[in-house]
Amino acid sequence: MGKKVVLTGNYSASEAAALCRPDLIAAYPITPQSSVVEYLAGMVHNGKLDSNLVQVESEHSACSVVQGAIAGGGRVFTATSAQGLALMFEPYTRMSTLRFPMVMALATREMTSPETVWSGQQDAMCVRESGWIQCFCDSNQEIVDMIIQGYKLAENKKVLLPVNVCYDGFYSSHLTEGVDLPLQEEVDQFLPPVHINHCVLDPENPFALDPLTPGPLMLKYRKSHLDAMEAALDEIEKIDKEFGDQFGRYYGGAISEYKTEDADVVIVTIGGMTGTGMDAVDLAREEGIKAGLIKLRFTRPFPAKRIAKAMEGKKAFAVIDRSVSFGWSTGPMYMETRAALVDADEKFAHFSVIGGLGGADISLDMILSTIRKLNVVKEEPGQKDTQWYMVD
């Protein structure tokens, strides 16, 4: 099945988006996302992709344009990073609260200031309460597969929410890997034509798409949105199995586990650090440490029950964040993982790890040091000091 190609992460996102037959594409170039839209523009110009490409003057306009196309019943795609995401925040939030299903690639990057264009996950973490589904990928193959799965999830009638497919800027966006790119007929078989009928504007049947909404009705909107997020957790698992049955690649659903069955200590990773984390687990095992890894694939909806189940019988855990939670001296996904384990202080030794900010490396030795530290404190339940991966 498919064809073997070598692609950057950005080109992987572009090829996958094209396979999903978008009716309209609108995006504004910003580092490190720029080559996503540039590649798609070339595909449209060369006749490889039959899609409407709208040239816009900003990310705010890009997000607004794709909203209009969804309201007309179309399938759309866009991509951004960091300050571009910040600029589109107004229509970005409206996208989810209007329950418009779409997929957006997010090549994650630090937010300024201090001025930087390099990798980090702060941009995605800043908008995690905006109502979007968030998926994090650690390989270019996963980028391809999750954009295709993303449309299946977003357009599911039980969900009807937009999906961010996130991957590390530069580490994934600009580095090349071998990718099994599905054939068009294979994607057509997996992903049916778009059929959105809950919000489509029709001159023959006019209605107010976004009316001024009083409090009692707003409560119903928000509860419906949260119910859809909960429904998405089940659909993520089903879609993962359906995709794996057809393409032979299973990702585990909302989380994936590596050598956790008999583990005493567990690290939780997000995005591109995961491969290094698995290598660190292997080395720790050679040292006699019973280590395992949980890859947090979806941060919204947060897979609290899956994490709690995976942590049963473990003694210690650390969450490695490539971002910070302002107001806490920790990373954001550490706080959410701890919240999922309501009795964490009684059952586990645990701590937050912060590293990789502004493009800094998260090395094998760094992660191995975390595993060794967990092994030392595993018999001492409670929160320990945050570990920082500082680079001289």
Rank of each mutant, 00 (worst) to 15 (best):
V5T: 04
G9L: 05
N10I: 04
A16V: 08
C20D: 02
C20L: 05
I25V: 14
S34C: 11
A41R: 09
E59N: 07
H60Q: 11
S61V: 08
V65T: 11
V65Q: 00
Q67Y: 02
A71D: 02
T78Q: 05
T78A: 05
A82W: 02
A82G: 09
M88R: 07
E90Q: 15
R94K: 15
T97V: 13
L98A: 14
P101K: 06
A107Y: 00
T108F: 03
T112N: 14
S113G: 12
T116Q: 11
V117M: 12
V117L: 14
G120S: 15
A124D: 05
M125I: 12
C126H: 12
V127W: 00
I133K: 00
I133A: 01
Q134D: 07
S139M: 07
S139D: 07
I147Y: 01
K152H: 10
E155V: 04
N156E: 13
P162L: 06
N164M: 15
C166W: 01
G169Y: 01
S173N: 08
S173Q: 06
L183C: 11
D188G: 04
L191H: 02
I196E: 02
E204R: 14
P206D: 13
L209T: 11
D210C: 13
T213F: 08
L219S: 14
K223P: 04
S224N: 15
H225K: 12
A232I: 02
E237F: 08
D240T: 06
D240P: 06
K241A: 12
R249I: 12
Y250D: 10
G252R: 06
S256T: 09
E257G: 01
K259D: 12
E261V: 15
G272C: 09
G272H: 11
T276D: 04
T276R: 01
M278P: 03
V281Y: 05
R285S: 15
I289V: 15
A291Y: 01
A291P: 02
L293S: 03
K295A: 10
F298I: 03
F302M: 04
P303R: 00
I307E: 00
I307M: 05
K309P: 02
G313E: 07
D321H: 06
R322F: 01
S323L: 05
V324P: 01
F326L: 13
R338H: 10
A340W: 04
K347P: 04
F348R: 03
G355V: 05
G355A: 12
L357Q: 04
L357R: 05
A360F: 08
D361H: 08
S369E: 10
I371T: 03
R372D: 08
L374G: 02
V376P: 00
V377L: 12
E379G: 10
E380K: 14
Q383W: 04
K384Y: 13
Q387R: 10
D392S: 11
D392K: 13
